[in-house]
Amino acid sequence: MSALLQAEGVSKRFGGVQALAGVGFSIRRGEIYGLIGPNGAGKTTLFNLLTGIYLPDEGAFSFDGRLLAGLKPHQVAEAGIARTFQNIRLFANLSALENVMIGRHVRTRAGVLGAVLRDRATRGEEAAIERRALELLEYVGIAARANDAAGSLPYGDQRRLEIARALATEPKLLALDEPAAGMNASETAALRGLLERIRGDGITILLIEHDMKLVMRVCDRVLVLDYGERIAEGPPGEVQKNPRVIEAYLGAPAAV
């Protein structure tokens, strides 16, 4: 009952490559669940399957008591899963504020008629969208840059902006694809604080991350993939000692 997301036997093949082979796991409400593995292990593929960008060959996800099979990406977002992208995909030429306001799209209603007539309800909604977007920029700590073009922000701020935009969709599950990539130590520390705060606000987090220090500190449980297969799952401390995991990461000192 406490599982928010459940994956069963998820498989995906691209041409001759088995990107994912029968992966299953379950994420509990309110936890930070890490997803790690060497490059090419299938982490991002799993994200893309979860968010409806690809269709799985086999298996399915059930989210919040509902089967996600066949949902398109925008329906997945509506169901309550928001994501960020490994290679940041902001609306680079729009302002930071507009980026977050777009995140409110799925939770707001105004249509063409409302937009044209600007009735009281629409004006109210529009004001609420802007207010909420500003709050979220504040929340991730980049409110000062609200009116700057997203593409002109420093790298770390872009990552934060992506998180703010994802939070604007009011997700139950926030799926982050390498949020710490390219961040320096102090930025990473601040990110850790942010992740814990988000979790504290009741949002479950699925985290792909290469920064093992961050994963070990922030995650409650970790799933390890290698060559598309699940090789271990458990609390970070245990997983770290698992011989298969050490083997998979052999030569990668970060795993120590």
Binding site: T51, I53, K72, P73, H74, A77, E78, A82, R83, F85, R89, L90, F91, I102, G103, H105, V106, R107, R165, A166, A168, T169
Partner: peptide, 9 residues
């Protein structure tokens, strides 16, 4: 792609 992920049909 990003627009879709933000729930825009």
């Amino acid at each position: 792609t990003a627009a879709r992920a933000m729930g825009i049909d």
